[in-house]
């Protein structure tokens, strides 16, 4: 049993390493090939755990190979448009100028039900509101509505304002984030001065966020 236990720990570490190597991606954002690799890796990992007579390396080598190839192919896809097309395919335009392209829909096997469901998911219940729609390589539908149905923006209203980056977490659970502080060019003195003004200490801060204009928000730890 101890062999199975230790093998499971080794493979767990290896899986974490492989997933980190492949990079941060949510399941919904995975390309079909990446999804296939992820499923394949999880299947391979089970073999040496179940059968202790199988060398652990028969699991380790394919997992590392698949994860490495995934990284290399992603890198090649960035470098070459042709590789990108082979790996991920191309987005398919199914509504252009408000007209449904049925031929394209048949080609990518995208049913009317899929289309209507995706539109509903984006709060569009009438297909005639759509000017342009694309089925992305991940299978998600991107929609551009006709002018009268688009949301009013600040630009439409001619409301002037400054574009600034969103606030960043500089203290989480009493721990200062030096990287975030560096990005925001904040010094420790500024943090300490601000916290002194708020009559609290770093260790008592649950969350502190600061934006580029030095506007901050503070949540104290609950006792």
């Amino acid at each position: 049993m101890s062999v199975v236990f230790i093998r499971a720990i080794i493979l767990y570490m290896l899986l974490i390493f492989s997933v980190r190597l492949m990079g941060k991606r949510q399941i919904g954002e995975l390309q079909p090939s990446e999804l296939a690799v992820t499923i394949l890796i999880s299947n391979i990992a089970t073999l040496p755990v179940e059968d202790t007579g199988t060398p652990l390396l028969t699991g380790i080598i394919p997992i590392i190979t698949l994860a490495s190839l995934d990284v290399i192919m992603s890198w090649l896809a960035i470098k070459s448009r042709a590789v990108r097309r082979v790996m991920s395919g191309t987005p398919a335009i199914i509504i252009r100028d408000g007209k449904l392209d049925q031929k394209q829909m048949r080609e990518i096997r995208f049913t009317v039900d899929d289309l209507v469901e995706s539109l509903r998911g984006q709060g569009i219940f009438d297909i005639s509101e759509v000017q342009f729609a694309v089925v992305e390589t991940t299978g998600n539908l991107s929609v551009y509505q006709k002018y009268p149905y688009r949301n009013v923006t600040n630009a439409d209203m001619e409301i002037k304002g400054k574009s600034i980056d969103p606030p960043e977490i500089v203290i989480a659970d009493g721990e200062p984030d030096n990287d975030a502080m560096k990005r925001l060019t904040l010094s420790m003195e500024w943090i300490e001065r601000t916290l002194k003004k708020e009559k609290t200490a770093i260790r008592d801060v649950f969350l502190m966020t600061v934006d580029t204009d030095r506007n901050y928000s503070l949540i104290r730890k609950e006792r």
């Binding site: 190597l21 990079g23 080598i61 590392i64 190979t65 994860a67 490495s68 190839l69 990284v71 290399i72 890198w75």
Partner: peptide
């Protein structure tokens, strides 16, 4: 960094084989 690590790992596996 990841690409370099991936190439190094593939190279390592080939060498090991």
């Amino acid at each position: 960094k990841r690409v370099k690590a991936a190439f190094a790992l593939i190279g390592g596996i080939i060498l090991y084989s």
